[in-house]
Simulated scan of single mutants.
Amino acid sequence: MSSPCGPEHAAVGDVGTALMMVDSRLKSIYDRNQQNDAEQRALNDQLIASMGPGDADDVLDGACTLIYMFMQWLRRAYEEHDKDVIECVVPNLVGTMRVMTRSIRPETIPTMTGLLVAAALDLSPNLWRKQYGYWTKEEMNPLEATAFLLAEHINRITDDRDFATRIITDALTRVDEG
């Protein structure tokens, strides 16, 4: 039976912009260049400031699509080793979010955990979240951090700093060609 929260019912959103924001954050962390980090933040802030309400919603949907795609990739990768993605990924990410006290408020962690579990169970993170009302301002940084942490987790297990970005850009290229 199809769920109303199934990914086939979800808006894909602006995956390209969401990926650019995650990739920008990954590069700033990997490069540890403070000047580059400040420049990247300024560019991201400028991009966000130029968006209208519809654009912001599209990027939000895009971030949820990234979370879904990353969790689907991780689910398949862990299943190949007879492991459960929820058991292997969720506690790690929750523990990391708990120490990110400047970016992630503790009360947002259960929602981000729910997004991860929804995606692992083949549900749309965005549709799952919208059951409980519209997104709050306090959830925006944690949402971006969740997508970033998933990408970083994928990069770490593949030992390739660009792997997570590449799997998404490859998928987007296939869609554009199809």
Rank of each mutant, 00 (worst) to 15 (best):
M1V: 14
S3F: 02
S3Y: 03
P4I: 01
P7H: 05
H9T: 04
G13H: 10
D14I: 06
D14P: 14
V15M: 06
G16C: 11
A18W: 01
L19G: 13
M20D: 14
M20E: 14
M20N: 13
M21D: 05
V22S: 12
V22E: 06
D23I: 00
R25A: 15
K27W: 06
K27C: 09
S28G: 03
I29K: 09
I29Q: 10
D31R: 11
N33E: 11
D37I: 05
D37A: 15
E39S: 10
L43G: 03
N44F: 00
D45I: 00
Q46D: 07
S50M: 04
M51T: 12
G54K: 07
D55W: 01
D58Y: 02
L60F: 11
D61T: 00
G62P: 05
A63C: 14
C64I: 00
T65G: 04
T65P: 05
L66H: 08
Y68W: 11
Q72T: 13
W73Y: 15
W73C: 12
L74Q: 09
A77H: 12
E79I: 06
E79P: 10
E80W: 03
E80I: 00
E80P: 01
H81P: 01
D82N: 15
D82C: 07
K83W: 02
K83T: 01
D84Q: 04
V85A: 14
I86C: 06
I86T: 14
I86P: 10
V89N: 04
V89W: 01
V90W: 02
V90T: 11
N92V: 11
V94L: 03
M97N: 07
M100G: 06
T101N: 03
T101I: 06
S103L: 07
P106Y: 02
P106A: 15
M112A: 07
M112N: 02
M112P: 07
T113I: 00
A118H: 02
A119I: 03
A119N: 04
A120F: 02
A120K: 03
L121P: 00
L123C: 11
K130C: 04
Y134G: 10
W135K: 04
T136Y: 02
K137G: 10
M140E: 07
M140Y: 03
M140T: 12
P142F: 03
P142L: 02
A145R: 01
A145S: 06
F148C: 06
F148M: 13
L150P: 10
A151G: 15
I154G: 15
R156F: 12
R156G: 12
I157H: 08
T158V: 08
D159Q: 13
T165E: 15
R166L: 02
I167M: 15
I168P: 06
T169K: 11
T173C: 13
R174I: 08
D176E: 14
E177S: 14
G178E: 12
